[in-house]
Simulated scan of single mutants.
Amino acid sequence: MGFQLTIPANLYGGSGSLHELSNILKKESARKVIVYTDKGIRNAGLVDELCKVLEETGVEFNVYDDIKPEPSYIEVEKIQEETKNAQADLIIGFGGGSVMDAAKLCSVLIGASYSVKDLLDTPQIAAKKIKTIMIPTTCGTGSEATCNAIVAVPEEKVKKGIVNNEMIPDYVILDPQLIRNLPKQIIAATGVDALAHAVECYTSNKATPFSNVYALEGAKLIFENIRQAYNEPENMKAKEAMLIGAFYGGVAITGSGTTAVHALSYPLGGKYHIPHGVSNAILFETVMNFNKDACADQLADICDAINPSYSDKSVNEKAQYVIDEIADIVKVTNIPVNLNEFGIQKDDLEFLVQAGSEQKRLLVNNKKELSKEDIRQIYSKVIG
């Protein structure tokens, strides 16, 4: 059986690489640009740096900063409606996963006859209308590399993914200076999200030799650097490694796919609005323990990559080492590990089980098939 991988065509990285933007705009002969971002990024002063570079190029640009965290498909439709007359030659997504996902959706929506709702039902009809430049300001979602866009579906109280290669970004800029002052809790949540991407993709039913290269290297970079990036604010080497590791995790998603960790996290974001990285972190250890006997070989490969001193251990010991490392990272970075902290009680269990079991797009990637009882047991362990 064949396999393929589609990745962004142009990638720039390293400190100060934001300034490559001027070369990109010249290459594309862009006259008008629309920037999608959010108010948190604007208030942090990062948008000012972007605007400075844009002003130096002389290009006309508009900044749209009203993107909410983890928007619904209705909110994305509103964003598209409010910016459709910008007549932009290029779209820049400048922010975290929600911003970049919204920007990618706008790139296939502006001027289209279909809506976001249509794409939820029939994602293959999407066609790119405007080229995109993705510039992440967190170190975790990997959205800058993927053909995915995640939106909340309020009437179903879940989140769903729209997947189409037309949304692969045309340009990506990974500038570690943009995450220099990232708050610790965001480094933690987005970093663990990126780690989940890498580990899940490497252990996925859809993993391929192409995706495994990126998943394994992404996992290695994040395992080896997330604690330093979290604990040492000035450790730019660790932060740059996190940014690259997150990108690799995103590439792995496009070639493979996440599994039950992400599948079961979607209802937590959709109904209870728990931040995506946090909900993944809460579930990560428990799901991997459930999966361990089915993907021990793959987890052992990850162990070999991150801890050569374990070379003489058994496959089972190596697999457990990786799961223990995941648990330790979540603990060290002070991410909550119990859904009780978000007001979720045993009474919520039946909704979670039903909604989680409906995430077929990702559950089919899981090495072990999950019955509703399996899903109930997993949620029960993290409700406490």
Rank of each mutant, 00 (worst) to 15 (best):
Lys184Met: 03
Ala194Arg: 02
Leu11Arg: 12
Lys313Ala: 09
Ile74Val: 15
Ile34Glu: 02
His273Glu: 15
Gln345Ile: 14
Val332Pro: 02
Arg31Gly: 02
Glu285Leu: 00
Val99Gln: 00
Lys331Asn: 11
Ala189Val: 05
Phe342Trp: 03
Ala241Asp: 10
Leu54Asn: 04
Ile226His: 00
Arg42Gln: 09
Asn164Arg: 02
Leu363Glu: 11
Gly269Arg: 01
Thr132Tyr: 06
Ser98Glu: 01
Asp48Val: 05
Glu350Leu: 08
Glu155Ser: 08
Gly245Phe: 02
Glu55Pro: 01
Glu144Ala: 10
Ala241Cys: 09
Pro183Thr: 08
Glu166Cys: 04
Glu70Pro: 12
Glu56Ser: 14
Ser309His: 14
Met242Gln: 01
Glu232Tyr: 10
Val382Trp: 00
Val278Thr: 13
Ser113Asn: 15
Glu224Ser: 14
Thr137Phe: 13
Ile162Lys: 13
Met134Ser: 05
Phe94Tyr: 09
Lys26Gly: 13
His276Met: 07
Lys239Thr: 07
Thr146Tyr: 10
Glu217Ile: 12
Gly96Ala: 04
Gly249Gln: 12
Gly250Cys: 00
Leu174Tyr: 04
His19Gln: 15
Leu182Lys: 05
Val153Ala: 05
Phe223Cys: 06
Ala127Glu: 14
His262Ile: 10
Glu81Lys: 15
Tyr171Arg: 09
Val116Gly: 01
Lys220Pro: 11
Leu5Gln: 04
Val116Asn: 02
Thr208Arg: 01
Glu49Pro: 11
Lys78Val: 15
Met134Ile: 13
Lys318Pro: 06
Val261His: 00
Tyr64Ser: 11
Ser380Phe: 13
Ala219Thr: 07
Ile378Lys: 06
Ala103Val: 12
Glu28His: 01
Tyr12Pro: 04
Val353Cys: 07
Ile67Pro: 10
Thr190Glu: 00
Asp297Glu: 06
Pro69Tyr: 07
Pro183Val: 08
Ile110Phe: 07
Ser314Arg: 01
Ala9Gln: 15
Gln228Lys: 15
Val35His: 00
Asp121Ala: 15
Asn212Phe: 09
Ala327Cys: 11
Ile74Phe: 11
Gly40Trp: 03
Lys117Pro: 03
Glu358Pro: 08
Gly96His: 00
Val287Phe: 01
Glu28Tyr: 12
Ala319Trp: 05
Glu20Ala: 12
Leu195Trp: 12
Leu21Val: 04
Ala149Leu: 02
Glu217Gly: 04
Gln177Ser: 13
Ile110Ser: 02
Cys51Ile: 12
Ser265Glu: 03
Met167Phe: 06
Gly384Met: 08
Gly93Trp: 12
Phe94Lys: 03
His262Arg: 06
Gly356Arg: 00
Ala305Gln: 05
Ala112Gln: 05
Ala229Gly: 13
Tyr36Gly: 03
Val382Phe: 00
Gly356Cys: 13
Pro69Asn: 13
Glu77Pro: 14
Arg227Asp: 03
Pro183Leu: 06
Glu224Phe: 03
Ala281Asn: 01
Val163Pro: 01
Gly277Phe: 08
Gly191Glu: 02
Ser211His: 11
Gln185Met: 13
Leu283Lys: 11
Pro183His: 08
Ala188Asn: 06
Tyr12Trp: 12
Met288Leu: 10
Phe61Met: 04
Leu25Trp: 02
Ala296Gly: 01
Ala44Glu: 03
Ile326Arg: 05
Asn291Cys: 09
Thr37Trp: 09
His276Lys: 00
Glu373Val: 07
Ala196Tyr: 00
Tyr73Pro: 12
Thr259Gly: 05
Leu352Ala: 03
Val108Thr: 12
Lys346Ile: 09
